[in-house]
Design a protein around this nucleic acid. Structure first.
Lengths: 131, 131
DNA sequence: CGGTATCCTGACCGATACTG
DNA sequence: CAGTATCGGTCAGGATACCG
């Protein structure tokens, strides 16, 4: 098939309230979406592997988030057998791209965590009470 | 005073459930956090400007998200006057970096939106691996 | 203009139990 | 192992009203 759709035919605008890109943005930046995309960047992995790797995720949210990412075209679900259920999740080419970006973000965050924690401890010039 | 070389002294791990990086990640990937960081990438802007630019944001969440970003050290709040209140928000050097990454993400998303919408309309493609 | 405080809803999300 | 179903809590987030 001609799997090169006209990406240029349509351009989103995340600043526009009703742009469909908002929905995708919501999925990839969701609490677990970003972590799953980064984790899958290392290659196809099984349900249980992902569950163990992403600290704190519940089965429900793992399944839910994988569905989102699959529907958006970032992840492909591959059933390898059925006797003992064996399912793998792997990034699509589209998913590889966004995974790379999220990995960059995560990596930068991990490296600069010190600076942020330092910032958090400084006396806020304008503090809002009760936040 | 100069007892702060924290950047390399501490490295986070987003996969770890209780790592403080999770909190920062939550802020920057929050519904409005990513959009505000991208918007502020164009330069310092006022409250009302941001409100108008980011479609759908409420005053409460604008203020709230700005507080988060300020506390994490990404945004600086600058009061220029008090007669007619004039407040500007601008990225710190730290904020510039992460803003750039989020802008890349948003840009990629906008450009590839067509591919994602196409994926969403296809029948869920669970594959039986003949690999 | 640039916020702040309060109330309220809905969704995200976790815990648990159950299925194939 | 890989989920699905259900219940319920917490909290992001919206609406409104008010202040400097």
């Amino acid at each position: 098939m001609n799997d090169a759709p006209p990406d240029h035919a349509l351009r989103g605008n995340v600043f526009s309230e009703h742009c469909p890109s908002r929905e995708v943005l919501k999925h990839v930046t969701s609490r677990w979406g970003v972590l799953l995309l980064v984790a899958l960047g290392d290659g196809a992995q099984r349900f249980g592997e992902l569950r163990r790797r992403v600290g704190g995720i519940s089965e429900k949210m793992l399944a839910q988030t994988l569905v989102w990412l699959e529907q958006d075209g970032f992840v492909q679900r591959i059933v390898q057998s059925a006797a003992p259920p064996r399912v793998e999740y792997r990034l699509t080419p589209l998913g590889e791209e966004i995974s790379g970006k999220m990995a960059e973000l995560a990596d930068w965050l991990e490296n600069n965590l010190g600076a942020m924690l330092a910032a958090q401890q400084k006396t806020p010039g304008t503090q809002i009470a009760g936040v």
